[in-house]
Design a protein around this nucleic acid. Structure first.
Length: 302
RNA sequence: GCCGAGGUAGCUCAGCCUGGUAGAGCACUUGACUGAAAAUCAAGGUGUCCCCAGUUCAAAUCUGGGCCUCGGCA
């Protein structure tokens, strides 16, 4: 890598609770790297506990990018992430360091590594709010009228609203707007996995610790700061459950288990997403995966 | 001990009156996913219907007995 053009960039991916953040930290320290976090909740400022941000110590030793950079009252989109991540990667490489992408937001990782066009139409919140009030069947009708060829889940309101939002601005067909332009570097996709029993145990422990560390207080503080209860960051695992507790629907004693359950479901969904990607090189994280990852990376043309 | 309520899917419960061998939500498994993605949506499996006996062509459902749980009164 030289002159701001990295030859290849490691992407450390895996389910929540597998320990990928720590692994990325160790890899960065060993190889003189900086970490670009690919995480749709860690981008927000102020909410630290349940987003599993790196610790103060880790951030002192290794330089992190895209952590806590967005106002939690707003929505930070995958498009903004791809732009910012590409800038960060170029910047890191220009300084002669190794960029390492790490995270669990799978759409974000694919959008970055495969260069999704994302239709080229930004969200229109006002229109979105109008459309959200319509029944699903009506939304599906609008999409069919705008683009009879459109292939999408006609029962998913979020998909339909987005399709209408795009088609009204860019025109049909929808398929033309979804293209890929790969980045100017080769993605080295590293997947972390482990026996699900091991993952579940780590998630249970982590959920308990998050409540002990003041998750409920942090959630209350966010509300007081003006973060809407339906803001993306508060729909994240941990905060959604903490809000349920604040509303009186979940006891404090039950909170860690409710959080752990959401985490287990999410971890499985992430694993399912990754499994079908044949470009991933897998490492087992039951024991420390870092030595194996370093061997793998040292054999690559970075 | 008496009175009342109840025992149906891993959990919370509907069905029982008016018999035709079972259903919802959540959980679980699987799938979709191009500017909300920790979001959103979809498909699927799941059962000694507490036990025993009786009535009946047929019982989760009706009848009798038993066991257990939760309230209230003692």
């Amino acid at each position: 890598m030289q002159g701001g053009r990295p030859a290849s960039v490691p992407l450390l991916l895996g389910p929540t609770g597998i320990g990928k953040s720590r692994a990325a930290f160790e890899v960065a320290r060993a190889l003189g790297g900086e970490i670009v976090v690919c995480d749709s909740r860690q981008v927000y400022d102020r909410l630290d506990i349940a987003t599993n941000k790196p610790s103060r110590e880790e951030m002192r030793e290794v330089r992190y990018h895209l952590v806590g950079i967005a106002d939690p009252r707003t929505t930070y989109t995958v498009f903004e992430f791809v732009e910012a991540a590409n800038r960060a990667i170029a910047d890191i490489a220009a300084r002669g360091r190794l960029p390492i992408v790490e995270g669990g937001s799978m759409l974000w990782a694919d959008a970055l590594a495969e260069g999704f066009s994302l239709a080229g139409v930004p969200p229109r919140p006002d229109r979105r709010a109008e459309l959200e009030r319509l029944p699903v069947a009506e939304l599906a009708g609008i999409v069919r009228r705008l683009d009879p060829e459109a292939t999408l889940d006609e029962r998913n309101p979020v998909r339909l609203v987005r399709a209408i939002e795009v088609l009204e601005v860019a025109g049909p067909p929808l398929a033309r707007l979804r293209t890929r332009r790969p980045p100017p570097w080769t993605p080295l996709r590293i997947g972390l996995t482990a026996d699900l029993g091991v993952v579940d145990l780590r998630l249970a422990r982590r959920s308990r610790r998050q409540v002990e560390r003041g998750l409920v207080e942090e959630t209350r503080a966010a509300l007081a700061y003006g973060v809407p209860a339906d803001a993306p960051v508060l729909t994240g695992i941990g905060y959604a459950e903490a809000l349920a507790h604040i509303r009186g629907e979940v006891s404090l004693e039950a909170l860690p288990e409710v959080m752990a359950r959401s985490n287990r479901r999410y971890a499985r969904r992430q694993l399912r997403w990754l499994r079908r990607n044949p470009a991933i090189t897998w490492f087992d994280a039951t024991a420390d995966p870092v030595p194996g990852i370093l061997d793998f990376l040292r054999a690559q043309p970075i």
